[in-house]
């Protein structure tokens, strides 16, 4: 939890201040460098310029971000559903596991940069290729989270349930599934961080004008608006970070016991 910093207590204020100070230092150095070197804004704009121009074009950026977020959300929802279904099937059947796991690993070796334009060729400039790319990038960490979580089930706990007369499905429902939830969330967190970038890459490869942060970046680049390219980059980062942080909220809502258990050791 690097981003969230440490817990309150001795030195808590210093820890909370560490991130703002680091950002301020970075900002200052960049601003100073641009000012002192007199570098062209088309090559490297100052951060204040990025913010100013980004604000100027806020409605375009917000509209683009809306498209990107929509693609991300649909893709991610499909991904969670598909990954969960696959993981459960793999948990119940060794044959399915042996057949699918290598394929899943293989799917992660496909170079996105090549795949994205192909998906555009196959599925056009609309929503479909973006959603597919998000699914492709995000489902693997989620499947792995589930499978590791299922595998982390204590044998003794399974035996206890079996001694109660539990069926295989009941062992899954009462034990393996809830037991896997914390690791599922770890996988979810990794996946959601990549998801926005996957959507942006797909847009970059081809989208209608203005429909997504990725295509905005290309438009700005072609008109030599480096400041706006960077503004779009920062919006992308902000959306990714916001989604990443939201997983902690989801976790607290859905598995509150996990935090109590950790707190009490």
């Amino acid at each position: 939890m690097i981003i969230l910093g440490g817990r309150a207590g001795v030195g808590g204020a210093v820890r909370w201040a560490a991130l703002p100070i680091a950002i301020a230092a970075l900002y200052g150095t960049w601003e100073l460098y641009v000012w002192l070197s007199g570098i062209e804004p088309q090559v490297l704009p100052s951060p204040s310029r990025v913010i100013r121009e980004g604000w100027e074009f806020r409605s375009d950026l917000a509209k683009g971000a809306g498209f990107t977020l929509r693609e991300t959300a649909i893709g991610f929802a499909l991904s969670v559903g598909a990954a969960t279904l696959l993981a459960v099937m793999m948990d119940f059947s060794g044959v399915i596991r042996r057949a699918l796991y290598p394929l899943l690993v293989g799917s992660q070796t496909l170079p996105l940069i090549v795949l994205a334009p192909l998906l555009i060729v196959w599925f056009g400039f609309g929503l479909t290729p973006k959603v597919l790319l998000v699914v492709l990038v995000t489902f693997f960490p989620i499947v792995v989270g589930w499978i590791d979580g299922f595998a982390a089930t204590e044998n003794e706990a399974s035996n206890l349930l079996r001694s109660m007369g539990a069926s295989r499905w009941q062992v899954f429902r009462y034990l393996r599934f809830p037991n896997a939830l914390p690791r599922f969330f770890s996988g979810l967190r990794i996946a959601i961080t990549y998801s926005v970038v996957a959507a942006v890459v797909a847009e970059w490869a081809g989208a209608r004008l203005g429909e997504g942060l990725g295509v905005l970046m290309i438009q700005y680049e072609h008109s030599f608006r480096t400041d706006l390219v960077l503004a779009a980059v920062f919006v992308t980062a902000a959306v990714s970070i916001a989604l990443f942080l939201s997983t902690y909220g989801m976790e607290r809502l859905l598995i509150p016991w996990y935090f109590r258990t950790r707190r009490h050791g």
Binding site: E154, E156, A157, M164, Y174, L181, W257, Y258
Partner: peptide, 11 residues
């Protein structure tokens, strides 16, 4: 059957 570990489910 009651094993040595309590095996109470944390959730």
């Amino acid at each position: 059957y009651m094993p040595q570990k309590d095996l109470l489910f944390p959730w």
